[in-house]
Design a protein around this nucleic acid. Structure first.
Lengths: 196, 196
DNA sequence: TAGTAACTTGCACCGGGTGCAACATTCTGC
DNA sequence: GCAGAATGTTGCACCCGGTGCAAGTTACTA
């Protein structure tokens, strides 16, 4: 009963995918910052203006749907048993990010490298994590035994930020090892060091 | 024996200070993003081009000398006893940031608020912390009992990132309370929650 | 098939930032 | 005090990312 996508929808998806593929290729070849939107548009066979019709910014090409991912993590977190402690709960919630990455592992690695090399992207990634922080803090605050407040308790925010920092370190280590390192293990070891 | 600053140096400092003061006033009145460099330059009585002679970017007006601060923290960290554990050592190192903030407390609060409200500044602040991370990680790695490596151990990086997250939460709480909350106490409580 | 909704494109514009060249100022050695 | 080097200021043209608008084209729908 799912209606087939219209021609418009199909072409839109196809163009979207081709812009992404073209851009990633250019990024790999020349770097993110050295590649201009005009070059991407020209290589993809569309006008510069149309590019901004498909992507709100150049960063959007490599940032993925951070809002949806953040919501997924939050949902996974709230779905954990109510009496589970903060650390195991957030660890389990982060696991929903791993399966989403399978499939084209090479592409994920390339993306991680682009993220790593462009300072503006690193900053953007961190800003995304700030949003996640606000999303996850309330649940964590409860799990830490802290009373609910309208604005998140700094302790809960610090806790979530620390967990995200461990997650970042794990992803970085994974990318640096060409995908051979186990990010979950790195994450667990980082947490262990924090609590030692 | 310190030679008096030349006329050039004095005028340079004076102009620098006046641009900063003018810009902060405009930022407080209209917000960081809504204030253009042209407006700042006009209000300060210099040309747009000269502005970029004094500041490499608009952000530089409110970011302070992050490199120097990071180096100060690192120096304070390496100056701690060699056998001190990681947590107390980094806590003590962060304390060098507090005395630097006294004097014009109102100005610091205004700065913190500007940082908080402009997304680009938040991202830039986080990027600055990434630099600090690289600076502090080697020492922390040793204090965590991890073997020295050419590229920092992810556990050490996660540790430093977590400490910086607690620092951020403390500063945020301090700013949110109009300077009444004690950031050191907030920091300690955040760390305690992490390790519980 | 006619009309409407959505897409594409060019254009003009904004704001941050840079390289360059001309001019003005201060500093330095004589 | 003066000549010349060093430093500072400014305008100009330009790059890049991003947006609003209007005109033309394409696909959907009644």
């Amino acid at each position: 009963m799912t209606k087939p996508p219209s021609l418009r929808e199909r072409t839109r998806r196809a163009v979207h995918a081709e812009i992404t593929a073209t851009a990633l290729r250019l990024f790999r070849e020349h770097g993110f910052e050295a590649t201009t939107v005009d070059q991407i548009a020209a290589a993809a066979g569309i006008s510069r203006r149309s590019f901004f019709h498909y992507f709100a910014s150049k960063e959007d090409l490599v940032m993925g749907d951070t809002v949806a991912l953040g919501a997924a993590v939050r949902d996974a977190l709230t779905a954990r048993p109510a009496d589970e402690a903060a650390w195991p709960a957030i660890r389990a919630a982060f696991l929903v990010l791993v399966p989403a990455d399978d499939g084209d592992l090479a592409e994920q690695l390339a993306l991680a490298r682009i993220h790593h090399d462009a300072p503006s992207l690193r900053a953007s990634l961190l800003e995304k994590h700030l949003r996640w922080q606000e999303l996850l803090a309330p649940d964590i605050q409860r799990r830490l035994g802290l009373p609910a407040t309208d604005t998140p308790d700094p302790r809960a925010r610090a806790f979530v930020a620390a967990a995200l920092a461990a997650l970042d370190a794990a992803v970085d280590a994974w990318a640096a090892s060409n995908g051979t390192a186990d990010p979950v293990q790195v994450f667990d070891e980082a947490i262990a060091v924090l609590r030692a």
